[in-house]
């Protein structure tokens, strides 16, 4: 556990950089995390995925897995890998201020 500063705000993150309190997340923080992970600047497509992840997590009580994002966000798997290279499920969750999806455990 450590404290990091994203978008001018100090937040607690776990060893893998995931926010501990998803309520503390702000869009400015997403940009800052994207900067840190080499994804910045975030495009409209990125924001579409982030918005879906936030809404879905609020509704379902847990971060959506990659398969769910590809099925329901309107952005397909291939594109998700372009937008969030390597591990899109994990990366999208982290930028959206959500915990690591359980399917990654």
């Amino acid at each position: 556990m450590s404290i990091r500063s994203y978008g001018g705000q100090s937040v607690e993150v776990n060893d893998e950089g995931f926010l501990l309190d998803q309520a503390s997340w702000t869009p400015a923080m997403a940009e800052a995390i994207a900067e840190e992970t080499g994804l910045a600047p975030l495009t409209e497509k990125h924001w579409k995925v982030i918005a879906f992840c936030r809404e879905d997590a609020a509704r379902e009580g847990q971060a959506p897995g990659l398969r769910r994002i590809a099925k329901l966000s309107g952005v397909d798997m291939k594109e998700l890998y372009k937008l969030f290279p390597k591990g899109p499920g994990k990366l999208a969750a982290r930028i959206s201020g959500l915990p690591k999806p359980t399917s990654c455990v």
Partner: peptide, 8 residues
């Protein structure tokens, strides 16, 4: 189930 048919 969820998308993989696993039960929450």
């Amino acid at each position: 189930g969820n998308d993989m048919n696993f039960i929450p």
